[in-house]
């Protein structure tokens, strides 16, 4: 079993009387992509802030790369990269200047800003002021900034939010490449398909508590209901949709009788999505 990149033990945080995180425990393995899913206000951002040393937990312990983040904050931060959901770039600087500033702050000696910008499809705009960039370009630049120190853990908060499908796909490829390089990735996203595709494991956070944690496959196995949807045409010419639950003793008979008795127009299987599972567990959607 590979050692843990992140170890979180029963952490809590509150803003005044608002209890944002209520004792959560999890770990992220080395080279693992860990999806952290939950609706707005669930405690995702507060958790990321605690993991990256921006705020300290009121209770519990966080170990990042084997170090207590509250005691060795600087040493932890030197080895991680963070990309934020909301734009926080120096807009009066160029893309290269933004990256070089952070490379200098990290103390990176040999740094090739142009190469990094090419990786996130920003070549040609290297010397332009960030204020002239679109939201998607800023998002990509923030990802590039998170990579300047070749982090061992990459924290990505909604990295594909607001991006066109091609750019979003490119970002996903970069995330996978980073994992290949050896980085662990802590990913928060609203895009369930993205979480499903990328994550080795996902955690659902709801009202400051983790309500489920497993691989997408196992979560679907545990909570999901697989269905066959069949569209048929009746004698009077009307279209009718029938759902047949898979993995039941009667499934085969039901399908067979439909084919025998009615004219089948379309047939396809349907898996439960992570969104369905989240709703099933918490009683509410992720986008709310």
């Amino acid at each position: 079993m590979s050692p843990d990149a992140i170890n979180v033990d029963n952490i809590e945080f509150s803003y005044g009387n608002v209890h944002a995180v209520k004792g959560i425990t999890f770990d992220v393995k080395e080279k693992e992509i860990f999806g952290f899913l939950g609706p707005n206000g669930a405690g995702k951002s507060t958790t990321i802030k605690m993991l990256t040393g921006q705020i300290f937990p009121k209770k519990g312990k966080i170990s990042v790369l084997g170090m207590d983040v509250t005691k060795k904050t600087g040493r932890v931060q030197a080895r991680i990269g963070v990309s934020f959901e909301q734009t926080n770039l120096y807009e009066q600087m160029s893309a290269v200047e933004n990256l070089k500033l952070f490379a200098d702050l990290f103390g990176v000696k040999k740094f090739d800003a142009d190469k990094l910008l090419a990786m996130v499809d920003l070549h040609g705009r290297n010397r332009d002021h960030v204020s002239t960039f679109s939201k998607g370009m800023k998002q990509r630049l923030m990802l590039a900034r998170a990579l300047v120190n070749q982090p061992e853990i990459l924290f990505l908060d909604e990295p594909t939010e607001g991006l066109d499908p091609v750019s979003a796909d490119n970002i996903r490829k970069i995330i996978l490449k980073e994992r290949e390089r050896g980085a662990a990735v802590f990913l928060t996203t609203h895009d369930m398909m993205e979480a499903d595709k990328l994550s080795d494991r996902v955690a659902f956070i709801h009202e400051g508590k983790i309500v489920a944690l497993d691989s997408p496959y196992h979560l679907k196995q545990k909570f999901g209901k697989r269905l066959i949807k069949v569209e048929t045409e009746t004698a009077s010419g009307e279209l009718k949709e029938t759902e047949i639950t898979m993995d039941e003793p009667y499934t085969a008979d039901d399908v067979r009788s439909l084919f025998a008795e009615e004219k089948v127009i379309t047939i396809h299987s349907e898996e439960a999505s992570l969104e369905d599972i989240f709703i099933q567990i918490t009683g509410r959607g992720l986008t709310g």
Binding site: T52, G53, Q77, A78, V82, N88, F102, G107
Partner: peptide
């Protein structure tokens, strides 16, 4: 916030 996620 961005600067404070570095060792600064």
């Amino acid at each position: 916030g961005a600067v404070l996620t570095t060792p600064v």
